[in-house]
Design a protein around this nucleic acid. Structure first.
Lengths: 205, 205
DNA sequence: TAGATTGTTAATCGATTAACAATC
DNA sequence: TAGATTGTTAATCGATTAACAATC
């Protein structure tokens, strides 16, 4: 958490609220309640009300929440009421899957630059973009003022790629490499490692 | 958490300890300490010692932990000292990426069955396996006694696919569909939605 | 021995939940 | 009005941290 700010754990739940609300809106539902949201998400209604109360008052006693209004407010809070450009580092199998994934675009994220170190890949097209040489990544990112990146390189190359991203001013890294990253204060890293998720479940089997 | 068991939050950290130890072992390192592990992972040394103390005593005062021994013990605790078969549901872009991902195999997970509903895909080969008809998923999974599945279908198809997995006796679902799932007690779900991870970072930008 | 690090206890800190007045 | 649900307070619950005796 940023000192004095909202606890991380609350921020981490907001995207799920947003996702459930988007679903409801898509289904044409106009009103919901903390009870209904909680049941959908497996969270207590008290927690949802408490979380939202950190940001303002969005509901009406006796009625609940207007789906569209709360959706809009949450998008503003999370700053996803705009489009974010994202850099993709690594054009291997995973990079290809990410580049082709249609789910980013309509939820406000756009992969707008792709980098790799492999001369055989540089210059090739991927998802409508040209794969660029990672050697020129820092100036290119600086020029385009990108703040978000997805890291889809082998574990051994992840830290040095992350260092370049930090140097280029990137403030959020979505790390698909199965390794921890060391980054300075003010840069945020989120890890996605499916094996870790599987290992969290085998304990219970 | 299972009542009376170890808190979920502790289990969720163990795979990261395992990953760091595997890296150290690969680098030929024989001994480590809670201090060193903590620095690598961004966790306090006290927390690491406390977490491990739930399962036994693995270290030596004044020295620390033998990397190989602790690695082995953690693998036993998480039950990943064996190979787990995993079913893959959905053979779209994401399914292809998962089927081709080499990282599962050498960390103890093997995709051994792939299902889809699309007649154009059924019968095709993917990652050395034949894509099977999802209509026959329940009996096939039961027969093979699979406990783990990865769900890589569109959001609208996720709940009904999850219901089938539950019916077939699957106890752990890694859900890539951007939607919440409702499953009975005793079945565990882990969500992977990169957009959620990006949205957790934009708040701070 | 002196130095280092564990495992564990007790204290602190923070998050969740229960309950309810306010009010639509 | 009666019923429902919010926002908020206070109580509970659980997780993290600090500290240290034990001991390698």
């Amino acid at each position: 958490m940023v000192p004095g700010g909202i606890p991380d754990i609350i921020i981490s739940r907001l995207p799920f609220y947003l996702r459930a609300l988007a679903r409801m809106a898509g289904d044409g539902q106009c009103i919901t309640s903390s009870k209904e949201l909680g049941e959908r998400l497996g969270i207590s209604s008290a927690q949802i009300r408490k979380d939202l109360s950190h940001f303002g008052e969005f509901g009406k006693q006796g009625t609940g929440y207007e789906v569209e209004y709360l959706l809009d407010q949450l998008q503003q809070i999370l700053r996803v009421n705009r489009e974010w450009e994202v850099a993709l580092v690594g054009a291997g199998d995973l990079g290809h899957a990410l580049a082709h994934y249609q789910g980013f675009r309509h939820r406000g994220f756009q992969i707008s630059l792709i980098f790799d170190t492999d001369p055989a890949k540089i210059g090739q097209a991927l998802g409508g973009l040209e794969i660029l040489d990672e050697a020129f990544m820092v100036p290119t990112l600086k020029q385009r003022d990108l703040r978000l990146a997805m890291l889809a390189v082998p574990a051994g190359a992840a830290q040095s790629a992350a260092d370049k991203l930090v140097e280029a001013g990137v403030k959020g890294i979505l790390n698909y490499a199965p390794t921890s990253l060391s980054v300075p204060e003010g840069v945020r890293v989120q890890h996605i490692d499916p094996v870790v998720n599987l290992q969290r479940m085998t304990y219970y089997l």
